[in-house]
Design a protein around this nucleic acid. Sequence first.
DNA 1: GCAAGGACGTA
DNA 2: GTACGTCCTTGCA
Length: 971
Amino acid sequence: MHLLLVDGSGYIFRAFHALPPLNRKSDGLPVGCVQGFCNMLWKLMEDLKGDDEPTHMAVIFDAKGKTFRDDFYPDYKAQRPPAPEELVPQFPLTRSATRAFNIPSIEMEGWEADDIIATYACKARDAGYKVTVVSSDKDLMQLVEPDGSIRLLDTIPRPGQPPLRWIGMDEVFNKFGVTPDKVIDVQALCGDAVDNVPGVPGIGIKTAAELINTYGDLETLLSRATEIKQNARREKLIANAELARISKRLVTLSQDVPVELDLDALARQPVDPGKLFPFLKAMEFATITKRLAGLLGADPEAWEPDPELAVKQSGPIGFNNEARADARAARAVASGKAEAPLILHAAAEHARIKAIPFRPDHYEIIRDAAHLQRWLDAIYMTGYVATDTETTGLDNQTADLVGISFSIAPGTGAYLPLGHTTGQGDIFGGGAAEGQMDSREALGILRPMFADRSILKIFHNAKYDLGLLARYDVAVNSIDDTLLLSYALDGPQYNTMGELADHWLGVPGTSIKELIGTGKTQITFAQVDLEKAARYAAEDSDMTIRLWHVLKPRLAAENMTTVYETLERPLAPVLGRMESRGINVDRQILARLSGDFAQRAAALEAEAYELAGSNFNLGSPKQLGEILFDRMGLEGGTKTKTGAWATGADVLEDLALKGIPLARTIVDWRQLNKLIGTYTNALPEYINQRTGRVHTTYSQHSVLTGRLSSNDPNLQNIPVRTADGRKIRTAFVAAPGKILISADYSQIELRVLAHIADIGALKDAFEEGLDIHAMTASEMFGVPVEGMPSDVRRRAKAINFGIIYGISAFGLANQLAIPRGEAGDYIKTYFERFPGIKDYMEEQRKRVKADGFVTTIFGRKINFPNANSSHAAERSFVERASINAPIQGSAADIIRRAMIRMEGELKRAKIDADMLLQVHDELIFEVPLGTEAEAMVAIKQVMEGAAEPAVRLSVPIQVDAHAAHNWDEAH
DNA sequence: GCAAGGACGTA
DNA sequence: GTACGTCCTTGCA
């Protein structure tokens, strides 16, 4: 018979300092000690086989509250600081873990774990058991038996030491200088600062051992204290005899705790996969789950995560409330009213990480397979890794891989150089630099790690690395992204690694410019000196892991987990694939348009010179203003904020109406010139040599409201409003054998407004499929929809848009070219007809002033740090923006959800369709010719249902889809 | 060579 | 009145 007693509380406290901190991947719940605890439990079962295999087992914990020791010595453990914040949530989880392994979890109020352990150990010893106590607590060393019937076992992982360290007679003697039965006498004399056991002041462990070995035990020593020769020692012992006796009582473990379970009840039970896997999956311990599944011959997929412990998933109905609760909690945090351990935990993590110094000389350069394998082993041990690719350029569709860096903990870092060349600045590139692994071999080694779902890969801007690695056939599963964490938490406030490092870590990141220079003399990263490159690259990963440790716990603390998990992280790979696909652009159509536009622009230019009476640079607003308002002396000119003449299109239109033909000519010239410069001439330059297509880059983290932006080239502002502009869209064509589909949300923002502000009249109109602007006009002006003059509808439309933009009389007057007073009357009438809108606007104004942010219906936060600015114009601006942001942002969230779900749904419906572009309320697809009808049905379904189940909108969502060979006709 | 300002393309 | 990105000129280094 062999009883194994685990000192659960002792393990947690010691493991806390010995193990790397680890948070649950989904929500930042700290679980490092729980994971260490689970590892320890199953390793014990693995290691203690044969003679050492326990027949009985229990895990003992400290209960909350006072113990009997407090009754006679209130200062006992009084100086112990409260448990670290990240430990607190782990206490109950270790109990759950114990039960998950089908092991009794024992704790008793009024007793310390040590007393319960002592009671069971002695009972078992007397019954002839062998006893092992899993602990390294010196207070338990008094239990060790010389014959080995009771031993301690220390299992806290420590670098450079064996995983199991037995503590028997010899080890106790080494520690206390006495046999185990005299340990309490020694402790009574030397005391214990940590537990606030007083002992005899001035007597340390060595003196105590010497005295006890001389006199036999404490009582004998105290009764014969007068015999001691050393004056000081004698006086101290006599003066503090009572303190020594109290100390002995404090350290002596009780052996007669009235335990409820008898020894038989501790007999080992077989592990029950139905208890174990739901727990492990809820904790997201992928590696342990896999190993235990192998050991037990079980399929972990057969069990769902324990719903009590898992990250709360948004249910069909619950989400709206949850999002509101999130928003409430976030407001509480912002106003400092929240009391939440997670907030303190996040703050503590920030302080901890910030205090860890950077040690560039500790970074490693990986030059061979063995070294790479050592890092891989470390990554698998850790379960996560910050990683970053170094390349020859900013465009992941053309750049080449130069190296990869890794970091598994703050202060660690390694750089794996793969594509460095010799010969700095040599345009022929030189040969490969010495001391680099073959990139095919290295990628072959790394591929399984990147694909492994149990290893979390932490990037800063994962979309870039994913798109690049995909070109090297490296698939990446399980990602986190510090850029998107920051965006979910703080919006586009900090963007670059440098800004984040500066703000959160208090260090200026090395600028890439220091390595590659700028302008004409710029080199690529491949040409950077390898040692320098390694320091830069490893530092990048080091900073990424630090930022992750700082930002990830904030997610749970600030209730942004759902936003990050459902709107940010899963979108990045989707966008990455859209960028990789690109879109087919017909070079010849653009060339023909360039010629046509240039010819017409030249004619207009000549006409302008004629009308102006001199040659000047038509592209210069400065020169134009001087000609119009100084030389020609035209009236009514206004100045811009810098004092220059304003010559915008609205000003020129005005002049044209007043009979100044030059103004019209300039307007037309500018339009053509814009089309040439920004589109017909620029776009062909973006056609990728390798793919023959144009690949935009989306920014997921730049827009305040949650929209995407598109750049290099911007494919979200391809002209559509004018006939000439639309011709450019005809150059965006389907590949041979394919056809384009454009699917766009109809009036999505007005529908969202009707839902959020709960406007019955608007909702009814959408429900009945009415012309919403005509309906508005009819309500406002009392004009029947039938036979309504187009100008009346136009005004109503302007007002509807104005509402979405946070209307002002000034702005509406400008838009409609009517007097301010008249515009003000319109707005008044509107608010009278739709009082709910006014309430909504007031609510947002109030919110932004009180909280500094507003939220979308999915819980996304939009920050306005200037909400209480002393500048009136700035304040008004914030008010308008805070009215617009929830509307624009909720619509943006809806299309994000559609995009995230789209690929999976199309695949499920066995529809072959590639999502290529997003233009805020529109998605462009490329599908095989002939399949467009069924594709459109499926696409519409996903888009129209995108808000659900998270939010059940109270207005119908309508999507219009068209298929055609080019984008102009499909739109 | 770079930043700022003006102008203008989109939703 | 909201939210963006790009091109061109201008002015300064």
